[in-house]
Design a binder for these strands. Structure first.
Length: 577
DNA sequence: GCCGTTTTCGGCCCGACTGTTTTCAGTCG
């Protein structure tokens, strides 16, 4: 049983209990437990084995017992009983936007509806009208909700949403009477996927801002339009919410709309204990507003320092902040280079000069030019002759370049038996060796782990590229013993990559944090094949910040000279200190 | 079901918008 299995059972139980109309606080307890289990950096079975389940926030005696039952039997008696009380399709109805537990229950009791397909048919026939609280408009909304569910149900990768989100912010800045505009929500927290775009604006003329917003050229549909809050949908189905508050509330609103929801609840609870009410307009003692203009001010009112948005997930940041041990996380401005960029030599599209020029625009000192190795023929992998040519070209470039330097790297294939695609004496000549698995993705956990360990133990391998192989929305991570990988990486001073390509983000935030706790260090690489993709490095920094990594844990913060010295001494240096 | 500088019972975060209602319930974030 994995953490996600336990989590799924608790989530489904909460949904069933919602339909049954059970105590909302009990339901919330299950949801909170599920979320905290999802956020664990450790295997829950290991925690259970130590008898420390109740140390997990939101897990008391009763839920600990239930977790143990799930771990030993694979399911839960109470879960099985709950499932019998509600037809399986009914829970599915909750997925339809606009249909909540009350409506789902009513639809079932009045018309026997127990699937989305059935709901859609009856709505089309106009048979929902006349039910309690349902008239023509609600019927239309349900049909639209079902359509939406079918089309854009999935959360989208952050990297695909960010450009449009920034475009809309820029348009608002230019055309609406706003003093400030920012992205908020999961985008500001750099979550790897995004459900919708949240934007916050400060203005004295909220209604005028709303009118501009719903009239923007990117708007395909207006979902809601109020004086301070509106939602629209773009042509490709992306929902964008805009909220407008007065300037003096901007900080409070930014906290509120950045979330996460779980983090906000914790902050407001701290407020309640101090006799304060916190909402999007400020921090209040009785009627009096005591804070609200800036985020720092709001957090300070409940005794907290500033917490970076990426850490606001209720994954222990509140406790750490209260105890004064919140780490300072790495900042995009501290990044001095990109550890993984492809060039024309293999399957990239850019020349060395173009890569260096782009790096200069990004304010870097260096870039590792990594091309594929010889066996990866589909990606133009370099044979030994081509590799030698590339090395010479990079040396010639560096001799001329006064600012940006290029490192000669390779993304070397790890074979099925763990052997690398270039001989050791060739690897030894390279500045930066990244080892990767691109073939044989369906091997067993043992085989995959052994392949990676053998690469990690090679004295010439500096980093493991995209260690788990997952592709967002396309491919699961391959089976791996990550504990063993982390331990070996630390012991040998091998970096683990945070691959910043928008579909990979691999390692992810939770794995990063678990690895960092074991003393592992990281290399962030954009894996760019097109020049513009070097911008994705920002997403990798987002992952690092979500994983609580400081600048000293990320090799990208080293200057060129320091980097060369460090790379030359694997196993005896900064890398595994 | 959890949890405790208001402790082992009695609380548990907060507000906007919509559609249906004449004052609010449901849903969402």
């Amino acid at each position: 049983m994995k953490n996600s299995d336990v989590c799924a059972i608790f989530r489904q139980m909460a949904e069933i209990m919602e339909i049954l109309g059970e105590d909302v606080y009990r339901i919330r307890a299950y949801q909170r437990a599920a979320q905290n289990i999802e956020n664990l950096t450790e295997d829950i079975a290991a925690i259970a084995a130590r008898g420390e389940l109740t140390k997990i926030p939101g897990i008391g005696k009763e839920l600990a017992r239930k977790i143990e039952e799930i771990l030993s039997t694979g399911t839960l008696q109470k879960y099985e009983e709950l499932k019998k009380k509600v037809p399986p399709g009914l829970v599915e109805l909750l997925q339809v936007p606009g249909v909540g537990p009350k409506t789902a229950k009513m639809l079932y009791e009045e018309l026997g509806i127990e699937s989305v397909a059935q709901l859609e048919r009856l709505a089309r026939e106009g048979r929902l009208k006349g039910l309690p609280g349902i008239q023509a408009k609600t019927e239309e909304n349900i049909l639209r909700g079902i359509g939406l569910l079918r089309s854009v149900q999935e959360r989208r990768p952050l990297g695909l949403v960010l450009p449009m989100a920034r475009h809309i912010v820029a348009l608002l800045r230019e055309r609406a009477p706003v003093s400030r505009v920012s992205l908020a929500g999961s985008i500001r927290r750099y979550r790897e996927t995004v459900g919708d775009v949240d934007i916050l604006a400060g203005s004295r003329e909220p209604e005028a801002v709303m009118d501009v917003f719903i009239g923007l050229p990117v708007v395909a549909e207006v979902i809601a339009h109020g004086p301070t809050k509106s939602s629209i949908r773009t042509a490709d189905g992306l929902q964008v919410d805009l909220r407008v508050v007065p300037e003096e509330s901007y900080g409070a609103a930014l906290c509120y709309f950045t979330g996460s929801k779980a983090h906000n609840i914790r902050v407001r609870e701290l407020g309640v204990r101090r006799g304060l009410k916190i909402n999007e307009y400020g921090v209040f003692r009785g009627e009096e507003r005591i804070a609200g203009a800036t985020e720092e001010e709001v957090l300070a009112a409940v005794g907290l320092p500033y917490i970076p948005p990426e850490m606001r997930e209720d994954r222990g940041e509140i406790e750490a902040a209260l105890e004064g041990r919140l780490p300072r996380v790495v900042d995009l401005g501290e990044i001095k280079g990109d550890c993984h960029v492809h060039s024309k030599y293999s399957d990239g599209s850019a020349s060395l000069e173009e890569i260096a020029a782009k790096a200069r625009r990004l304010g870097y000192e260096w870039v590792v030019v990594c091309d594929h190795s010889q066996s990866l023929k589909v990606a133009g992998g370099l044979d030994l002759a081509a590799l030698a040519k590339k090395r010479a070209a990079i040396a010639a470039f560096n001799a001329k370049s006064r600012d940006v330097k290029l490192l000669c790297g390779a993304e070397v294939e790890i074979g099925m038996d763990g052997r690398l695609d270039y001989p050791d004496e060739v690897l030894a000549e390279l500045d930066f060796v990244v080892a990767a698995i691109h073939t044989g993705l369906r091997q067993s956990r043992e085989v995959q782990t052994r392949r990676l360990l053998s690469a990690i133990n090679n004295p010439y391998v500096h980093a493991i590229a995209h260690p788990t192989g997952r592709l967002l929305g396309e491919r699961e991570a391959y089976a791996l013993d990550l504990e063993a990988i982390f331990k070996a990486a630390q012991a040998t001073g091998t970096l683990l990559e945070i691959n910043a390509y928008y579909k990979r983000l691999d390692l992810n935030d939770i794995h990063c944090r678990a690895a960092a706790e074991k003393g592992v260090k990281f290399a962030i690489g954009s894996d760019a094949h097109l020049l513009d993709q070097m911008d994705f490095l920002e997403l990798g920094v987002g992952v690092a910040r979500r994983g609580w990594l400081g600048p000293e844990q990320v090799i990208n913060t080293l200057g060129y000279r320091e980097l060369l010295v460090t790379l030359g001494r694997k196993g005896n240096s900064w890398l595994n200190k």
